[in-house]
Design a protein around this nucleic acid. Structure first.
Lengths: 149, 149
DNA sequence: GTATGAGTTCGAGTCGGCTCGAAGTCAAAC
DNA sequence: GTTTGACTTCGAGCCGACTCGAACTCATAC
């Protein structure tokens, strides 16, 4: 840690850098998603560092892939606690990784169904308008979803 | 169309076959997601055909891949109108296909970030506990999300 | 000095898609 | 005949993650 001055960023700048609205950034602070308490300047305004921008970008990726806020908060808490919490953090990430992979697989499956239908309609364009009535229900076998009784 | 009796299914059976709750099935009817008006027996209970089960499975796939109910409703309406609406249906599907592909791409990108982090933590397990403090913010460049002003 | 624009706090509202519960009907099993 | 269980309608509630608006404070530009 040298004496180099850290770049100080306003909430608006951070918003521009992360794509998160200022509203969302305040909301995230409230939700405890930041690793360190957000600092304020003399006027009481939030001041961010580039490190925080980096973290927020990670957060954005986690969120966009469906990690719930409570999980991100927990991850942030572990980071705050520092050394000794690596395994727990690892766990959170691994679990989320599995979820995302499942999501991708599910989407791929849906994509198969959709693309098969698209192909049917595309074919139909080259044909007479006789078979059209059944296109909507044709397609690859859609497995009945698992029951959660 | 022969005189073969269609299998008549109760809402509970359809629920079991599709994985959608009875509540959801009634809700879908209300929302106009069915291609034909749902029939009732003498006692006023809903009676479904296997064709409807097929359609519901398609619906479930569309939903699980994020198609909004209004789009599904519109698709159902077009099917209801019959011949001449194929191009419009095709359009809805193609648009959704594109959305899903985008979703997959986004998830893959998130997965890259997550997996890079997972790898960092995994590595760390084999090392001394010194570099740990920076793992949480390390990772592949997270592009700032597009601004929607 | 005042207008502008960016920041602040707070609480309330929105959204989609279910999800639930209450109160009632009905048919078959016993 | 009564109990069970699956059905009916209706409207309300819930969930997470924002999203918005009002009312206010500041700092700088002109």
């Amino acid at each position: 840690m040298t004496a180099a001055a850290e770049t100080m960023l306003s909430i608006g700048e951070v918003s521009a850098l992360t794509g998160l609205t200022t509203h969302t950034l305040r909301f995230y602070e409230q939700e405890g998603l930041f690793v360190e308490a957000v600092r304020r300047n003399a006027a009481g305004r939030r001041v961010f560092t580039e490190q925080e921008v980096g973290w927020l970008r990670v957060c954005a990726k986690l969120r966009s892939s469906g990690m719930p806020l409570p999980d991100i908060r927990r991850y942030a808490e572990l980071v705050r606690k520092g050394a000794g919490t690596e395994t727990a953090r690892f766990d959170i990430l691994r679990r989320h990784e599995a979820r995302v992979q499942q999501q991708v697989a599910d989407l791929q499956e849906a994509l198969n169904v959709i693309q098969a239908k698209v192909a049917l309609y595309a074919d139909h364009d080259h044909l007479a308008a006789g078979s059209a009535d059944t296109l909507w229900r044709d397609g690859p076998a859609c497995t009945p979803a698992r029951q959660v009784p």
